[in-house]
């Protein structure tokens, strides 16, 4: 996704209000953007607190800054700067975190982002964008460029199955239909699950929805999604994020408020490091039960 993100931003780099800051990361990926943006590409060094406040200062003066790092270094290290300098002032700073969830795998816990949008969505004025597929990046960047509020863009790996058609971009997309439970997946985790679910016969295949923008309220949930929940009576939320502050909690709250809660609710989410061992992104997903095989078994 990072390369598509870079290629997309290159198209906007000549805009007079464009500024891109990086916390000394992006080697072998962001060079085209560096070339295109010239002096508007700022390597702020390994100093994320300063980088985020500088971005707030730039936004105060009418520029549209992007601030990029490995995900935890853009939301956890400079959290107070995001809270006070960006969110409290409702400035259009776009934070870009590369490697949502366990994407950095065996690099270790310091590099994982399994509580990012829960933390950030507790801040005022913050919006979160979690692209599910590489092809989501251009329309989401376009949207972010016009957004006049703070935002966090959580990049991951593009895991879309090659033979699966994805409808045009929308924050809520129904990708698969079937007579099984209703499943809502956040972010790139959807790719692998869709690849497995599409092989299941219609009678058991989950109605699979993909969600890419947070937060949401009752009015932004598609009626069709609510009808699917009502019809199937069983809702499952899948996300590479801890339960607290995640999509499962958020959706549970909204459904309780509307009285449209399903008879059965399942939540598959990140659970930290259950065994204390480290491995690839898939190792951690498996350990947390974030695999198609486990999800289907649990949903039986």
């Amino acid at each position: 996704m990072r390369n598509i993100f870079c290629d997309t931003l290159v198209k906007y780099a000549a805009s007079p209000d464009f500024v891109f800051l990086t916390g000394d990361l992006g080697y072998n990926a962001l060079e085209p953007l560096q070339k295109a943006a010239g002096d508007r590409f700022i390597n702020a060094g390994i100093a994320e607190q300063n980088m985020v406040s500088v971005a707030a200062g730039l936004a105060h003066q009418g520029l549209k800054p992007w601030a990029y790092s490995i995900a935890p270094f853009i939301y956890a290290r400079p959290l107070e700067q995001v809270r006070n300098d960006v969110c409290l002032h409702d400035l259009p700073v776009k934070l870009v975190g590369n490697g949502g969830g366990y994407a950095y795998g065996v690099m270790g816990g310091s590099h994982h982002a399994i509580e990012d949008y829960g933390i950030l969505l507790s801040l005022l004025n913050m919006r979160v964008f979690v692209p599910a597929f590489g092809l989501d990046i251009p329309p989401m960047v376009e949207k972010l460029l016009h957004l006049t509020h703070p935002a966090y863009f959580r990049l991951g790996r593009d895991e879309k199955p090659k033979d699966l058609d994805i409808p045009g971009y929308a924050p809520w997309r129904k990708i698969l239909t079937g007579q099984g439970p209703t499943i809502l997946v956040a972010g790139p985790l959807a790719g692998g699950l869709l690849g497995a679910f599409k092989e299941i016969p219609d009678a058991k295949r989950p109605n699979t929805w993909v969600l890419t923008e947070l937060p949401f309220e009752t009015k932004t949930i598609p009626d069709e999604f609510l009808r699917d929940i009502a019809k199937s009576g069983h809702l499952a939320v899948v996300e590479e994020h801890v339960a607290h502050g995640g999509v499962g909690e958020m959706l549970g709250r909204v459904l309780l408020l509307t009285g449209k809660n399903p008879k059965r609710f399942s939540h598959f989410c990140a659970q930290g490091y259950l065994t204390g061992y480290y491995g690839s992104q898939n190792f951690h997903r498996k350990e947390c039960g974030l695999t198609a095989e486990n999800i289907l078994k649990e949903l039986e």
Partner: peptide, 10 residues
């Protein structure tokens, strides 16, 4: 850091 951002913008 905020002032540095303002100065950079200028």
């Amino acid at each position: 850091p905020l002032a540095a951002g303002l100065a950079l913008a200028k």
